[in-house]
């Protein structure tokens, strides 16, 4: 049982605040992804949980034990680093065995665990090699095997796939998901890649400027962004936003069209590019750039002087300069408060 509870954790580096009082609870065996752009505080949070960084304020609890004053070795965690941190002076075997030896495990048990995790990560034939003789992907596997061999309650991963090339990343992603699901550990996984986050996570914590903006299931984060930032960060291409002016109670005028919306002082209209349909009735968009992507075509247009993107069927013939009409799918329209940038229900 390793539930992780983070209570009011904050971190300042001199005058710079990397984390503003963060609260987060990660359930036992949950796969939590911390997602955000570089500098958002996700790695700092992970390092605080690992014990590699001391929080300026707040508490970290792992498995019902307060750990923020404990060194990393006493926290029951294992970690996979962005650059793998495979010890260059040790063989693959000794790398995987490193933590087990530190725990004074009997040789037979060390061998059993190393062999098992090496098989699991498909590096059984590399055990005698040194890190310098391995490819990036192989090093990655060693790093994961080294963490798994500890049979930890919690595995922390800091952008583990970001140094791999695209194809390998795809392969490792699927494999990691399978292996980690089997291992029944609680996982915290830091990434800036939203596709990775969506595909791996039970829950995603989207971070920005040292805050957790939203922590929810991937589909929720995608469909119902809690804040404008989430909509603009997640989704490729990201959400479109248009200013709206009130047009009677619960009705809003957007780019000359009237939509049903929330009862509020002010609101901003938002729609995902794939939730637009070419129709005879809708927003008038002047096409600027057309990018055929195979399965569909990405249009960058201008609506009421604002940049606006739409994903259309690839068989539609559109050319720059065309004026087309885009109809938003009604139940996919979202509204944000233009002041606080929070979602309005």
């Amino acid at each position: 049982m390793a539930e992780i509870v983070i209570k009011g954790v904050a971190k300042q580096f001199g005058a710079f605040t990397a984390l503003h009082s963060v609260d987060l609870t990660i359930a036992d065996q949950e796969f939590m992804v911390l997602l955000g752009a570089s500098g958002c505080g996700k790695t700092t949070l992970l390092r605080i949980i690992a014990g590699l960084e001391a929080p300026s304020q707040g508490e970290v609890w792992i498995g019902g034990r307060r750990v923020d004053h404990l060194p990393p070795r006493a926290r029951g965690i294992a970690m996979v680093f962005q650059n793998y941190a495979v010890f260059p002076h040790l063989t693959v075997f000794e790398n995987i065995a490193f933590g087990l030896r530190m725990a004074n495990m009997p040789q037979a048990e060390v061998e059993r665990r190393v062999t098992r995790t090496a098989e699991l990560m498909h590096i059984g034939q590399l055990l005698k090699r040194y890190s310098g003789e391995l490819s990036g992907g192989q090093r990655q596997r060693v790093a994961v095997a080294r963490a798994l061999a500890m049979e930890p309650d919690v595995i922390l991963m800091d952008e583990p796939l970001s140094n791999l090339d695209a194809l390998l990343r795809l392969e490792m992603r699927a494999e990691l998901k399978g292996v980690l699901a089997q291992s029944k550990t609680t996982t915290i996984y830091v990434t800036h890649d939203q596709v990775e986050a969506m595909s791996l996570a039970d829950r995603i914590s989207v971070m920005n400027g040292g805050y957790i903006v939203q922590a929810d299931r991937p589909t929720e984060v995608y469909r119902n962004p809690a804040a404008r930032f989430v909509g603009s960060f997640i989704g490729n291409p990201p959400m479109n936003f248009l200013p709206a002016s009130p047009d009677g109670a619960g009705r809003w005028r957007v780019a000359g069209r009237v939509f049903d919306g929330p009862h509020a002082e002010a609101a901003e209209f938002a729609i995902r590019p794939e939730d637009l349909q070419a129709a005879s009735d809708g927003l008038n968009a002047e096409v600027r750039v057309v990018e055929p992507l195979g399965p569909h075509t990405l249009i960058t247009a201008e609506v009421a002087g604002q940049p606006f993107r739409a994903v259309l069927e690839s068989d539609r013939q559109v050319a720059p300069g065309d004026v087309i009409t885009l109809a938003p799918v009604p139940d996919r329209i979202r509204w944000f408060d233009p002041e606080t940038h929070k979602a309005i229900a």
Partner: peptide, 22 residues
């Protein structure tokens, strides 16, 4: 790389052990 040392800490080393072993 600092990460080598940090990895050693997460794998059960004290600061001194990590220095000596890594």
């Amino acid at each position: 790389p600092v990460e080598l040392e940090e990895a050693a800490w997460t794998l059960g080393c004290t600061r001194l052990q990590a220095f000596v072993k890594v």
